[in-house]
Design a protein around this nucleic acid. Sequence first.
DNA 1: CTTGGGATAATTGTATACAAAAGTACCGCT
DNA 2: AGCGGTACTTTTGTATACAATTATCCCAAG
Lengths: 224, 224
Amino acid sequence: MDGLVRNRKIVDKYSVRGRVFHKIRDDILEGKYEMGEEIRETRIAGELGVSRTPVREAIRQLELEGLVSVILNKGAVVTGISPQDIEDIYNIRTLIEGLASRWAAEKISPRELKELEDIVDLTEFYINRQETEDLVVLDNRFHEILYESSHSKPLQHILSPFHHYVQNARRTSLSTPGRAEKALAEHKKILQALKAKDADLAEATTNQHVKNAAYNLLKNKFPR
Amino acid sequence: MDGLVRNRKIVDKYSVRGRVFHKIRDDILEGKYEMGEEIRETRIAGELGVSRTPVREAIRQLELEGLVSVILNKGAVVTGISPQDIEDIYNIRTLIEGLASRWAAEKISPRELKELEDIVDLTEFYINRQETEDLVVLDNRFHEILYESSHSKPLQHILSPFHHYVQNARRTSLSTPGRAEKALAEHKKILQALKAKDADLAEATTNQHVKNAAYNLLKNKFPR
DNA sequence: CTTGGGATAATTGTATACAAAAGTACCGCT
DNA sequence: AGCGGTACTTTTGTATACAATTATCCCAAG
């Protein structure tokens, strides 16, 4: 399941700071913190067996990501991602994810195209097992590579964290009957458009893909 | 010229770290660093008369903003904002800045509306002096408050740094003859739509406003 | 002259120390 | 009991110290 993973993360995970950063980040996104809960540097440092320095640097980075809010001389409180934030993110992605596809159609490299193909093939292989977690990972990679293929730093900079933030929401979405199959079919269409270098088609299908995902998600949230 | 400024910054500027952060950030945006230039923590610390700790924290935050790129055990190199990045940013803003206006039309508070009105009035007052710098500041505030008025954390999180990044580009754009007047007229139309709570109109006029700004900017970049 | 190796210096990564601010608890006073 | 003030504790902010990694330079071997 691994092997084609490269250095895709902004914050490397081999330094102590990087590990701390991803630990706190994932804990927040997985709901292990309450909203408004205060983060004590010494506690985190103690739990992870490190000093306060890397913990502080990680918290400062999370501040910039908007996941915590730091008050001078008082500390950091968890802000996290609210349901409203998730809805907003999907609305924004519906408008600009297609742009990533458009630019990808113009700039994608053979290697990136090959990676997308591999992921689609793998998804087809895994889709019958109903192992949602694997499908989420593959979905992550598909979109992550799509963002890279746009070769636009600003766009990647927006979409990559956004996609990460809604990972939990996507997990439940991909586990609803039929959604994984539809998502795969949509990924295939996007891939075809990219192979054909058809920017208009790539943009349209991608925007529709996000729109469908958003609909599926919000339908679950507000049933009927 | 000041007075209605509140605590709009993500990173406060009263801590040493905050001052260092904004110093390096502005230096990068103003082109005081070469692309690929390495940042030495000790040098910055020495120049600003502080220790390495706040400098490191600031650099880590700049890493997350994408303005520098940190390599483990090697240091930070300046990435900055390329002309291509600026073009990309305008393309993205053209798609989503209107969304900020749409949501603002639905959620703006009387206080925020008043602030926008004040800014428009001030702009009208300053526009004859041909003091571009003042107009840039007022333009900053208009858009910043617009973003706040959307009451969307994700949207604000994208647009606020984007708008800051292209500040230099906007400066030259606003100094071209007639552009400031046109921008003011467009701001007025946006404001009217917000006052009327007309979400569709607010979105359309704002998108057009960004599109015009982009056109004016890129026209200068690629004359004829 | 070029190249490889190794000591040395410079730089980053993490830990600890100290200073300053904020929170807490206890006591006396009204 | 309620209020306020003061000592004490906790927590954050910054500085410094130490460890680990990387860069530099010099010299000798080919």
